[in-house]
Write a protein that binds this DNA or RNA. Structure first.
Lengths: 186, 186
DNA sequence: AGGGGCATGTAACTAGTTACATGATTAG
DNA sequence: CTAATCATGTAACTAGTTACATGCCCCT
């Protein structure tokens, strides 16, 4: 699965511009896929040359012209051959988890700062997914519903564990430093 | 967070060869990070030039020589500067979820084949994480324990949702095709 | 005889990012 | 007057992959 497959998928749903595609990636797929303009525009040019899509320049009032791309029969065949290709494994790259793995080389304060930050981000992420599900759930296909349910459940489970972990680390810290109080009592 | 940071992290724990590093990535970090030999060996050469690590050639009986790398003070400082850098967002790329998102363009059988495959893979993944936790849990640092707990909980939650989703899709199919039974009754 | 593990490395390639460049309109 | 939104695109770069090349040992 490459950026091209995901772009073709969006163009299967409706014709749109590179700018629209970027927005859809962010709004709809950001939890499990993303691509930058630097990927989208060159990929669209390449696909147009290969006749997987066609370009139509649309004039707009008050806004710049946009190039609206439409998938061709060849493009649709290409997308179906992607759907029939072998399923690729999920790839997760988590800076947070790498840091936690090497936590023995950081002091407790630094570790806690990562955890607090991870909690803030995960909460924002979860709130967004829940809002999307509430709003658009009724328009989603059954398989899209499964996607968002996976996202929500995963975020909730991560959040719970990081929060519990943070509480435990704070406790341990207090237990290991009873001297702090004595110093302050002086 | 790049491959270099993760390699430095492993070399903080102990000196080892490129081959060892690859094994550790697979055994210990594969859920949230991976790098191939094609990344590891060039990165080690580059880091040696930059004096972040030193190389020592070790002769072995019955096995090829190995280049064992040791982190330098400069390397340790570099690793600590990574730990103090800004936390990067998690990046997930899920072919399974992309396909599910575009499920409207695939027939029910194809969708079910993805889901079955996803379940098999997730179950294998979960079994491995659980086994690792049982075996090595007592030797893990508190932050490493959080990593594996996140992995286990996430896998369990994904599994539950995909299994429920698959059951639902099978139900819907039967409801939509009562004719099948009639044909078989002939 | 063949496969798997140990061990290192390179070359060709793919994919992707970030930053820059441009420029109009609209909202605060 | 400033920032955001709309809109497209390129260039330089970074990071990474896959496949190939080599070769010995051990087990079956």
């Amino acid at each position: 699965m490459t950026g091209q497959d995901a772009i073709l998928g969006l163009l299967m749903r409706k014709s749109m511009s590179g700018y629209d595609i970027k927005q859809q990636f962010e709004e709809l797929l950001s939890y499990f896929f993303d691509a930058s303009f630097g990927t989208i525009y060159p990929t669209l040019s390449k696909m147009e040359k290969e006749e997987l899509i066609t370009k139509e320049s649309i004039e707009q009032q008050g806004k710049p012209n946009k190039n609206v791309y439409t998938i061709t029969e060849k493009g649709k065949a290409q997308f179906h051959s992607y759907l029939e290709s072998k399923l690729q494994d999920n790839v997760l790259r988590s800076d947070f988890m790498v840091r936690m793995f090497f936590g023995q080389f950081a002091d407790s304060e630094l570790i806690q700062s990562w955890m607090k930050e991870a909690i803030v981000r995960e909460e924002a992420h979860l709130a967004r997914l829940k809002k999307d599900y509430e709003r658009f759930g009724k328009y989603m296909t059954p398989t899209q519903e499964i996607c968002i349910q996976i996202g929500i459940a995963s975020a909730e489970s991560n959040l719970k564990i990081v929060k519990e972990g943070l509480a435990k680390i704070r406790q341990t810290e207090q237990g290991e430093r009873p001297a702090t109080n004595q110093i302050e009592e002086e």
